[in-house]
Design a protein around this nucleic acid. Structure first.
Lengths: 165, 165
DNA sequence: GCTTTATTGTTAAATATTCAATAACTCTCG
DNA sequence: CGAGAGTTATTGAATATTTAACAATAAAGC
C-alpha cells in the first residue's frame, strides 16, 4: 500500500485562485478594521462585542455558556476567558444554572447594556461603510447565500467542538 | 453644539442583518477550520502558511518585510513575530537588504519549501471542500467581486498601517 | 551640507487564543 | 441503584497578536 496522495490534488484554477485571494484580503482587512474600531470606541475586540449583542437579544439577557459559545462560533474555553474579562469590566456576570448544577448562565449587566448601546451606532456605521453601502441589493443576497453555503458545510460534529468541525 | 449623533443610525434591515450574521458565521468557522487543519498537518497557523506561500512565489523566494506584510495584510509587528517563529523552525531566514540598510529580506529555506510542498495538497483540499466545491461557478465569480469591493474600501491610508486602514 | 520628517523593522508588555487536562455533574442502561 | 460514559465549564501553560515606543536609516527641503 502507498501513502502517496491517491492523485495529484486539484489545484485552484485562475478564477478560484483570484477569488480565494480576494476572500482572504477582504476578510482579514475587515476583521482587523472592526477590531480596531471597537477597541477604540468601546474598549473591546469584535468577538467580545458580538457576545454582548447575543446576550442583549436573549430572554432576560442571559444565556447558557455553551449556547453562547455555539451562537458565537467559538470554543467554550475561549468563551470562558472572554467572559472572565467582560466580568472584570462589569459588563457581564455569571450565575449558576438552576436546572443543571454544572451549568452557568452569563448575563448582561445594566452597565454592559449601556456600553453596548453606546457602541452600537458607530459599529453599524463601520459595518455599513465597509460592506452594505458598497454592495447592490443583489450582491447582498448573493453574499448571504454564499456564506450560508460555506457555514453549512462547516457546522457538523467534532471533538471538543461538536459544532466547530 | 451637540455631541449627539447627528441622526439615528441606519440600522441593518432584515436582509442585511441576515447576511451579516451569515458572513460572521462563515468567516469564523472557516478561519477556525483552516487554522486547525494546518496546525495539525503542518504545525503552523493559517496566516503563517500564507507567508510561506507568498515567499515561495517571490523571485528568489525572498521579499522585503514590509512588502510581505502588505501582501499578507498584516502589521509589520505581527510579521516580525511570525518570522521570528518561522526562523526558529528553520523554514525562513532573514538577510540584510543591500540597497537599504534599514531593510530586511525574509527568504524561504529549502526546508521551508519542503514543508510547504508537503502541506499544500491537504490545504487545497480543505479550501476546496469548504468553498469551491460547494459553490457554482457563478457564485465564485460573485464572491470574487464582492470581496474585491470590500477589500478596496479598506485598503487606503492610515497610521502604523498605511494600507491597513 | 544640515535639519527635519518619514520609513523600516524590532521590541516589551499587555491582551487574547489555543490546547490539553481536570473537576463536577448528568445520563444511560444493565 | 450504580458503573461507565458523556457533558459542562474552567484552568494553566504555550502560543499568538496588539499596542506603543524605539533605534537606525533614508528622503526631502532648505
Amino acid at each position: 500500500m502507498s501513502n502517496e496522495p491517491a492523485t495529484e490534488p486539484r489545484w485552484l484554477d485562475d478564477e478560484e485562485q483570484h477569488a480565494w485571494q480576494a476572500y482572504l484580503h477582504a476578510t482579514t482587512l475587515l476583521e482587523d478594521h472592526l477590531d480596531r474600531q471597537l477597541q477604540r470606541d468601546a474598549g473591546m475586540p469584535h468577538v467580545y462585542y458580538g457576545l454582548l449583542v447575543q446576550l442583549s437579544r436573549a430572554p432576560r439577557r442571559r444565556m447558557r455558556m455553551t449556547e453562547l459559545a455555539q451562537n458565537a462560533k467559538i470554543t467554550r474555553s475561549r468563551l470562558s476567558h472572554a467572559v472572565a474579562r467582560l466580568e472584570k469590566n462589569g459588563w457581564v456576570r455569571r450565575e449558576n444554572c438552576a436546572s443543571d448544577k454544572r451549568g452557568q448562565n452569563a448575563y448582561l449587566t445594566d452597565e454592559g447594556l449601556r456600553v453596548l448601546e453606546k457602541a452600537a451606532p458607530g459599529h453599524v456605521n463601520a459595518v455599513r461603510a465597509a460592506i452594505f453601502d458598497r454592495l447592490t441589493p443583489e450582491q447582498i443576497g448573493q453574499l448571504d447565500e454564499i456564506c450560508c453555503m460555506i457555514a453549512d458545510g462547516l457546522q457538523p460534529q467534532g471533538a471538543d467542538l461538536p459544532w466547530l468541525r
